[in-house]
Computed example of a mutant assay.
Amino acid sequence: MRVFVAGGTGVLGRRLVPQLVGRGHQVTATTTSAAKSGVLTGLGAEAVVMDGLDAASVGAAVRDARPDVIVHQMTGISLRHAGKPDFKHFDRWAVPTVRLRTEGTDHLLAAAEAHGVRHFVAQGYANWNGLREGGWVKTEDDPLDLQEGTAAHTSMAALRHVEDVVLAAGGAVLRYGAFYGPGASDDQVELIRKRQFPLVGRATGYGSWVHLDDAAAATVLAVEQKASGVFNIVDDEPAPASEWLPYLAECAGAKPPRRIPRWLARLVAGEVAVIMMTEGRGFSNAKAKRELDWQPRYRSWRQGFKDGLR
């Protein structure tokens, strides 16, 4: 197939493009910087410079590529676009990604309709943001937590927008867990080594992880199977921060993380960080394994952290 990857130079795009090429697909991938075009051509794709927030730029890129499917991987979470992660001011830090998940998604869908692209796959998110009621592990039938009243609300509302409009168009939304792998978790590991990533309270909040290569493999399957609907792309072991964070520190060769009370974490890092560490809900991958026939190579972050950080 002719596959159009919007956001080809992101941490996932760089793992996805070669997997698509290796399966025999003709890939056009976008970047916002002409200086990065060589990265994409080196991965086997045709490189296109595109501004995902400019409808004309998106329309022209899709028209010229004539794809069978569009894969939306555009985010703005890099240091260049958003600066260092800032959970206390999550709403400010997330502005570039929020815009790409609202305006950018709408531009890509409009271009798909205008140029006869019949399939659409978009990036979602399923780490700690399950609805904070009931059990600790959520399925695709459970709505995402909109985090109303917190600095994360705009980001969660943007994720809801992606799901609403992509599903209405008959496409698929892949709710990826927290990425780790080449270039994906370096900032977290740096904080852990500096002992600046503490456990909060009892650290009972759950999260879900996925290795970049496993996320890319699931995306390839969604493309080839013309999948529709929502899929949680996470590993087999959702777990509380009290388990994964000390283990990540151990694998990084760092001292055990400090533990701080909720009130201090709220003061220093904000309400979103407290929710994430104490109330977060993880996700089940049963549907993706059943319907996409996806089997993650790294079934648990325990294996992945050990292999990737030691």
Rank of each mutant, 00 (worst) to 15 (best):
residue 16 L to P: 09
residue 16 L to Y: 11
residue 33 S to A: 12
residue 85 P to H: 08
residue 35 A to G: 15
residue 17 V to C: 07
residue 54 D to Q: 02
residue 48 V to Y: 01
residue 76 G to I: 09
residue 83 G to W: 14
residue 35 A to S: 15
residue 60 A to K: 15
residue 53 L to D: 07
residue 31 T to L: 05
residue 62 V to A: 08
residue 25 H to T: 11
residue 14 R to N: 03
residue 65 A to E: 00
residue 15 R to F: 02
residue 17 V to G: 08
residue 76 G to Q: 09
residue 16 L to E: 08
residue 65 A to M: 04
residue 74 M to D: 01
residue 65 A to Y: 03
residue 53 L to K: 04
residue 46 E to W: 00
residue 23 R to P: 01
residue 50 M to N: 02
residue 42 G to Q: 08
residue 41 T to E: 15
residue 78 S to M: 12
residue 74 M to I: 15
residue 42 G to F: 10
residue 19 Q to Y: 03
residue 66 R to E: 11
residue 22 G to K: 08
residue 63 R to T: 09
residue 70 I to C: 11
residue 69 V to L: 03
residue 32 T to C: 05
residue 50 M to I: 02
residue 85 P to C: 07
residue 52 G to N: 04
residue 28 T to K: 06
residue 82 A to P: 12
residue 22 G to T: 06
residue 34 A to N: 07
residue 84 K to M: 10
residue 63 R to F: 06
residue 49 V to F: 00
residue 24 G to L: 10
residue 18 P to T: 12
residue 23 R to T: 11
residue 50 M to P: 03
residue 38 G to Y: 04
residue 85 P to E: 07
residue 41 T to H: 02
residue 69 V to R: 05
residue 35 A to V: 13
residue 16 L to C: 13
residue 18 P to W: 10
residue 16 L to Q: 10
residue 42 G to D: 08
residue 80 R to I: 08
residue 13 G to W: 07
residue 48 V to W: 00
residue 81 H to K: 14
residue 53 L to Q: 07
residue 84 K to H: 12
